[in-house]
Design a binder for these strands. Structure first.
Lengths: 238, 238
DNA sequence: CCTTTTTGTCACAGCTTTGTCACAACTTAG
DNA sequence: CTAAGTTGTGACAAAGCTGTGACAAAAAGG
């Protein structure tokens, strides 16, 4: 399930992107009206979160252009109290709106709501980071078109957290808190879990006809000594 | 620069965490009042973002407990229009507040503001001095478009301090104090560390196709005999 | 209930970081 | 100019961190 986030405010755009990504959407971003139309045409998102104040082509025009050609659900992003914007946008074909400052829960809920009305039941949340896919509800991981690999509950939590924060290094403390929570965990436990998860990722990378003794694929999970771990992928070197 | 995020709403907590991480903070999370106190005691964060409605121990009590023992800056998270909460929290020692729904920019700005008032200048996410870039959250250094070079904790501290004071000579004593702090350090240790850092900078300067025995590039770290060291760059000689 | 899976704990090997020391080269002071 | 002090460099050992495997206990599943 793809969402296109359009906002020229980079900070807000990234936070919106994270919020949707956390909810299981694949996120595409555009930072101006023209790019938005292009990304929409190329990527065919299932949902659009669209700011009205954009450079190059304003959000209303983008909304109108898209609506003329498709019924892609559109959530407008407006500043609080700009009622004229809301009415105008809804008339142009937007499906709903979100005001800034925004509540993450409300954003996700409204996204789901407009998708439901558009007859698109959101698929179960699948986390995707380049070729790595995780289905938390099934506790399965897959790389590209490879076999699905079952994960244990703790492995699932760890991988989910790493994927959600892909590109960042997460401290050991943060990971332990997230994975073990109230029960508490420690460095040894984390190390063992990381080892197990890495083995499963290596297994997922292994072509079915490969020799058992073939060297494991260069890893997705990166260690920063004395600090923690982060998720990279072989394709994120760009 | 560490921030402790305390909120029992997992969605909001994760979005808050992402926002602060994006701004360059190291993030620690707690989901109830007791865990917050524990994390505070163990991890010594520079800043606390604290929801008032928490299980086990409410945010006001947490705020009060921490304030009795330390001057760690505290940002309260409150629901819009709960003015009583705001006043009560400020009286207990909170430094500022953020209302939900929140604006990411405002959160980061208020965080920076209370840190500044507490005399702690926040580090930028990526420190840049001409073509030299340091990402403290990953402990990586890069020159121009070259390969990222991993640094050790002490190397990171030294380079960060030098970059922060680029163009100035820092005395040996000042550097030792900054890098080793309470544990203390000495001239020998500094000399060895400088040597190591210079080697890594030389490595970062080395074109990938260069001969292993090619002479190291003229350095970025300048020695002032009898005084200390400073950061210059090849491009600052003009 | 029994079997299988998951998780925690421990041990050990390998790797990385840091401190200490020695020595050569350079700089400064008399 | 010489002697003393400072700085750069390399080597090595100690300490700490990380990866790995084994096994037992706990949990889950049939």
């Amino acid at each position: 399930m793809k969402v296109l986030i359009v906002d020229d405010d980079r900070v807000l755009a990234d936070v919106l992107a994270f919020t949707m990504r956390r909810a299981g959407f694949q996120v595409i971003q555009a930072f101006d009206g023209e790019a938005a139309l292009q990304r929409w045409a190329e990527d065919r998102p299932d949902l659009i979160v669209l700011d009205v104040n954009l450079p190059k082509l304003d959000g209303f025009t983008v909304c109108q252009r898209i609506r003329e050609r498709a019924d892609t659900p559109i959530l407008l992003l407006t500043v609080r109290d700009e009622e004229d914007d809301i009415v105008h946008g809804l008339e142009l074909g937007a499906d709903d709106y979100i005001t800034k400052p925004f509540s993450p829960r409300q954003l996700v809920a409204r996204g789901h709501s407009v998708l439901r009305r558009a007859g698109k039941m959101p698929a179960p949340a699948i986390r995707q980071v380049s070729d790595l896919a995780l289905d938390p509800s099934r506790r399965e991981m897959r790389i590209g078109q490879g076999e699905a690999i079952s994960l244990t509950p703790l492995e699932t939590r760890l991988l989910d957290y790493l994927m959600l924060n892909a590109g960042h290094v997460l401290t050991n403390e943060a990971i332990i808190e997230h994975v073990w929570g109230y029960e508490g965990g420690d460095r040894d436990m984390l190390r063992q879990l990381v080892h197990r998860l890495r083995s499963k990722i290596a297994e997922a990378c292994r072509p079915p006809e490969a020799d058992e003794s073939s060297p494991p694929h260069p890893g997705y999970i990166e260690t920063v000594p004395g600090l923690g771990y982060g998720l990279i992928s072989p394709h994120s070197v760009d």
